[in-house]
């Protein structure tokens, strides 16, 4: 299932920040990980990902540097900044509140759905 663009606009950056909380990642790695962990729900094309990364960088939430990947190729790695960590914490709370509210309304399956996402997203 693909998410509507408007919803993705809100969810995409939080998802990227969450991925980078684990450590540095480069573009393709993020696309793949997002797609795998969200079963394609938050999968995004490069035409969406890279502008998003540049925007987060412009806001000072992430930073980037070129370095050699494990494959031996040069890649641009992105990492969370202190400001990005704070933003992630704040947005995570908001999303949790939102999901809770949606659950209360019976729009999302509450625990079951939350559990599956929690399972799919390593801490």
């Amino acid at each position: 299932m693909r998410i509507e663009r408007e919803l993705m606009r809100g969810a995409g950056p939080v998802a990227v920040l969450k991925l980078l909380q684990r450590g540095e990642m480069y573009g393709y790695e993020m696309v793949e990980t997002l797609s795998e962990q969200t079963k394609g729900v938050l999968g995004m094309g490069q035409s969406t990902l890279y502008p998003m990364l540049y925007n987060l960088q412009a806001k000072g939430l992430i930073t980037s540097r070129r370095r050699q990947a494990d494959s031996g190729r040069q890649r641009r790695y992105y990492a969370l900044t202190k400001k990005g960590s704070k933003r992630l914490a704040s947005e995570t709370k908001q999303w949790q509140a939102l999901v809770g509210a949606m659950g209360a309304l019976g729009i999302v399956a509450g625990r079951e759905h939350g559990a599956s996402v929690a399972k799919a997203t390593p801490a």
Binding site: G45, Q46, S47, P51, Y54, Q57, A58
Partner: peptide, 18 residues
């Protein structure tokens, strides 16, 4: 990848912010 024209527009906007 999606439409190249849209990607170019979004990338331009985002890069200029940097």
């Amino acid at each position: 990848f999606g439409p190249a024209r849209q990607a170019a527009r979004l990338i331009r906007r985002a890069k200029r912010r940097n």
